[in-house]
Design a binder for these strands. Sequence first.
DNA 1: GTCTATATGCGGATAGAC
DNA 2: GTCTATCCGCATATAGAC
Lengths: 223, 223
Amino acid sequence: MAIDTKERILDVAERLFADSGFATTSLRDITSEAGVNLASVNYHFGSKEGLLSAVLHRRIGPVNERRVARLDEIERFKGQDAAKVDEILRAFLTPPFELRAELGVRGATFTRLMGRVHTETNDEFRQSFVGQLSVVVARFTQALQRALPSLEPTELSTRMWFLIGSMAYTMMWGESVGLGEGGTRDPETVLESLIEYGAAGISAPAREPVPVRAGRKSRGAGA
Amino acid sequence: MAIDTKERILDVAERLFADSGFATTSLRDITSEAGVNLASVNYHFGSKEGLLSAVLHRRIGPVNERRVARLDEIERFKGQDAAKVDEILRAFLTPPFELRAELGVRGATFTRLMGRVHTETNDEFRQSFVGQLSVVVARFTQALQRALPSLEPTELSTRMWFLIGSMAYTMMWGESVGLGEGGTRDPETVLESLIEYGAAGISAPAREPVPVRAGRKSRGAGA
DNA sequence: GTCTATATGCGGATAGAC
DNA sequence: GTCTATCCGCATATAGAC
């Protein structure tokens, strides 16, 4: 028994954090389900926050590395300016789905966790998370900007944000009841839909920059 | 003093829940900041869960009512089959932004709360929330289906989901640091961007329904 | 590294006076 | 309706034996 306490804790914590969130999951929940001693968490990870950090960074790093690697590959083979929007989005969106498949039965949990990560408000974690993600997103935004030179940079950033929101929401709730009728769709199909939806949205022609002098903006209360 | 204890509690709870989440906000945090007695929460709302429910439903109801009212109006004036995708999306997305403006200084808090609502995992609440939202979403999905008759229904549902994800993410994080460079954009501009992004995504031509016999699907580990 | 036992505090909730 | 005082369980964390 006790094949690898540290690993067991990480696996169970990942599942419980993904299902119920960080604040509502107690160390007792984790250790009892993992079959390890309560004190071992503090021994191995220092604190509950330390455990959260370990759980998340075990997954986040690889995802972002793959994203960048895929984009590198595209640009190396096709040249920086030849990458198309859907190819760029595929490079960004595929890694979490790919890792999900590689993790087998743990895949669903991993996916929920990766979705939840985007909504986590724990200050310390969020700062580190956003810091890492920003670097990756900046790289992808540059690539997209080259594919869509006429699109205003701030508008492009906003749209990239929309994409991330769709991705996070889908990962978080994709496997649960869902909103619409039609039952769950398999992850690969959803990924394809997301790429094609996002590509169309990001490539949409921009509206006139600041539509002030038209009839708009007359209604509505002040801020 | 004690103008209206119940209202004071609701206002402070809304802000703290929006900023820090339900689980991490204690009743003591709320009552001390609101300047009311600890026991008053249980007196007025029965329990902490009761308070959460009251906080959320005070906002969710009106948002959904306005959504439906706007869609009704469009269909009444133009006929059911004449509503365009961007008009339908505008009807769905405008109400939260509109209410935000009407709430004045409380608007930012309201927006964060409405964003967070989509990520809340509290079972009892989520069930009720999804139940209400499903009804509204079904109505909008029908309208969109009429505007896009050739789009497969399950694909449309998926895309509507993507839209909700973008909306929720934007509401939750729109006012904070953000990921990209360009500073915060004002809510009305973001709303316009979201409508146009979503309309393009939802209207995107569908890929061939089930691309199985092509070269795809050969890579990747099994589920 | 792993365990038991325990320190110490915060949490929601309520009893009962006013 | 509002307050004080208190119950009581659960939380994280650690001391110290093994």
